[in-house]
């Protein structure tokens, strides 16, 4: 930086920072705008509740919406309790030794492993080895294993944010470990755990790679009957219609993208709201 007026230099630097931020953050608004503008026209009740027709070039996206909903709900129901319990174990019970620390580090790092690797793993274990086939159950198990480290990590952060002194004070009153966790630690960690869970739901809803070869169906003529059926899901459907089908009308693709985006952004808003609300009401 040149040796001129520091005030001026500060103004210029701020300008650069402002431009960079705009460049970094604007695209999200542009993307949302493009999708809303082009997708709005096909959105109708009809589009949401009817089956695809004519090789998916006409009709609606009902099976994809239902498929996504089923997969996401099953996954979160499986992974949230397991993940929170695992976090409680690691944070509140496990002795602080090298092994525990290695496990914690391993779990943090698993959260960063690419989703396609989990897909590969799920394909090898559930689809092939356990012979569950390409099915809802395989996809759900794969996604659960993928999301478990994320849930464990966010829950552990939430548990850690509850002051240790609360636990000590409770133990000193003769209250046992589990009772302390149940009545002091968990209630205060709940906002953090919930925010993490909601963000996980958003992430699972948009994941494609892990279910690509474990659960997703190119086209299913009827809604799934059991957990051993294949399903259509929104992100996979979007992938298929935008890359694999010739002469696909663009507005249907945009409409599908819009539904997916709307779903995920709504969920994320809920998460942000939960956090902001509780941060304002934080009690210590």
């Amino acid at each position: 930086m040149m040796k001129f007026n520091p005030k001026l230099s500060q103004k210029l630097s701020y300008l650069v920072l402002f431009l960079a931020s705009t460049l970094a953050i604007m695209p999200v608004i542009v993307i949302i705008f493009i999708i809303v503008k082009n997708g709005m026209s096909v959105i109708s009740w009809e589009f949401l509740v009817s089956m695809p027709k004519n090789g998916m070039r006409e009709g609606g996206i009902l099976p994809a919406i239902i498929g996504t909903f089923v997969i996401v709900m099953c996954t979160i129901m499986l992974t949230l309790p397991t993940g929170v319990c695992a976090a409680v174990y690691l944070n509140e019970y496990a002795r602080d030794n090298t092994l525990t620390r290695a496990i914690k580090l391993g779990i943090v790092n698993l959260a960063g492993v690419p989703s396609v690797v989990y897909g590969l793993f799920g394909f090898g274990i559930f689809v092939m080895f356990l012979k569950l086939g390409v099915s809802i159950i395989s996809g759900v198990l794969t996604l659960s294993i993928m999301e478990l480290p994320v849930i464990v990590t966010t829950s552990r952060n939430a548990l850690n944010s509850v002051p240790y002194s609360f636990r000590e004070a409770s133990w000193a009153l003769g209250v046992g470990r589990w009772q302390t966790i149940r009545h002091i630690v968990l209630p205060n960690a709940l906002p953090g755990i919930m925010t993490g869970a909601v963000l996980s739901i958003a992430r699972i809803s948009g994941e494609t790679a892990p279910i690509l070869f474990t659960a997703a169906a190119f086209y299913a003529p009827h809604l799934p009957h059991s957990i051993f059926d294949q399903v259509m899901t929104l992100p996979y459907h979007l992938y298929i219609i935008s890359t694999q089908i010739p002469n696909m009308p663009n507005n249907i693709i945009f409409g599908t993208a819009l539904v997916l985006l709307f779903m995920i952004l709504t969920i994320s808003f809920v998460a942000i709201f939960v956090r902001v609300y509780f941060r304002k009401h934080e009690k210590w």
């Binding site: 809803s205 790679a209 992100p235 979007l238 935008s242 890359t243």
Partner: peptide
């Protein structure tokens, strides 16, 4: 707070949607 929320929204957009926009635009 507003900018951080926007960044968070950005993180939530699924990769298929981003791929699709990339293809089209």
């Amino acid at each position: 707070d507003i900018l951080k929320s926007l960044v968070e929204l950005m993180a939530a957009i699924p990769s298929v949607v981003i791929g699709f926009i990339g293809m089209i635009v």
